[in-house]
Design a protein around this nucleic acid. Structure first.
Lengths: 234, 234
DNA sequence: TGAATTTTATTTGTCGACAAAAAATAGACA
DNA sequence: TGTCTATTTTTTGTCGACAAATAAAATTCA
């Protein structure tokens, strides 16, 4: 939209353009700055970044194979919709992946993994203290992503990141509602999970991860229930 | 390689080229017609299919985001390697996904799902009867993919397909060794799984899927053990 | 001979242009 | 006026070309 980007430094390193566009579009989609269903104009993006359509297209192809955008043949590509009708699939998947990655992290963790996990947890706690809902959402994602990394299984890591991204989009819809007592409970549950991973207590990790997933599932369900009542009131 | 393709009909539908190249490369990679580590030449492919590099590149980007090829910046893209050192990650993942998808299929299955699953099982049984190892590998993949489809969870489906593809590549390495008694056991286990899904017996599905996964894990481990002995003998 | 440096050749990433396909608009006809 | 058809406009998919980056070859120098 802003013309500034056009005049700005056209000096870019060869190959960096795709990543730049990819990262920015991805963030915008996950933050709902680009709403589900909204079309993406290749030419407009090309002008905005001062590059040709080729790298833009490559970024879109990558986003498409991650399911973040959908491309109809010979027609415009648009931001993927959130499937509100089948949230139980998301709930099933996040519950299982929380459990599996936390269990595996308890087995495979190394000292540096715990450091990284603790760093993200500190940022999450800070976001909760600051009542910064957007920061809560993203740091919470990073916390669980770090656990999935520590689990070291590339298959589970891949699906976990995908689920966490969908969750980020989902929670972003309701970021206003995060000013109740729940976030503090999340902080404490995270601490318990870290301790269990450090103690290599696989069974405890399983129980804690399951309870943690149940917690977030219940919260999302409440948010949606509330939302539906509002819809009916109109 | 063959010059015939160059002269062949240059009449293609707009947009079909990418899919054609993608499908062919994908099959070649999964069948090990393209060996892990071998480089992929864009120009050569472009000439072979009589198209420019643009659609070739798009196909390669798609394959890269599925992890089937790896692209180093400013350097050639090559077929991804199989990580033999960390096969336990594969074993963990396939065991869990067999269990989860079979369980969910028992709950979510519809009549048409069973038809599809049975069709693939029939093809698998035929491949076993014909002692056609390559057909066994691909039809076995389709059988489990059909179960994952019937489970109807897009997250689990996605990771299952990825795991099954890796398994196809892994088994393809040892397709010579399939002339022992194991395939017949697989046929019977598949039948038992189908019956359990039809009966909606979730717990039985879990046990059968786990046993089935254990079976294939054991077989792959044996194949690799045998292979290592051969290496040492040289 | 062998290591370091320059030159050449190959390959990739990006660009601008063009044609096919679809959408939007205008026109014809009842 | 409303519906169907023809025309224009917009947007996508593909192409050939070029320059940056890398690899390979040739040359220099110890």
């Amino acid at each position: 939209m802003s013309e500034a980007a056009i005049d700005a430094a056209p000096e870019r390193k060869r190959g960096s353009g795709v990543k730049m566009v990819y990262d920015l579009l991805r963030d915008d989609i996950l933050d709902l700055a680009l709403l589900p269903g909204s079309p993406i104009d290749e030419v407009q993006l090309a002008e905005r970044f001062g590059m040709s359509r080729t790298p833009i297209r490559e970024a879109l192809v990558r986003l498409a194979s991650e399911g973040l955008v959908e491309t109809l043949p010979n027609r415009s590509t648009m931001v993927s919709n959130i499937d509100f009708l089948n949230l139980h699939h998301f709930f099933d998947a996040i519950t299982l992946m929380y459990r599996v990655t936390t269990r595996l992290a308890a087995r495979a963790r190394r000292p540096e993994d715990l450091q990284i996990i603790r760093a993200h947890q500190a940022q999450f706690a800070a976001a909760v203290a600051a009542q910064d809902a957007l920061a809560m959402i993203s740091t919470n994602r990073e916390f669980h992503a770090a656990i999935a990394e520590a689990a070291r299984n590339p298959y589970f890591l891949n699906i976990s990141l995908r689920i966490l991204d969908d969750g980020r989009r989902l929670l972003r819809l309701y970021y206003q509602s995060f000013e109740d007592r729940l976030p503090q409970e999340y902080v404490e549950e995270h601490e318990a999970i870290i301790a269990a991973i450090e103690a290599r207590d696989v069974e405890l990790c399983d129980r804690l991860a399951r309870a943690h997933a149940d917690q977030i599932v219940r919260q999302i369900q409440q948010l949606f229930a509330r939302d539906h009542r509002q819809d009916l009131a109109l």
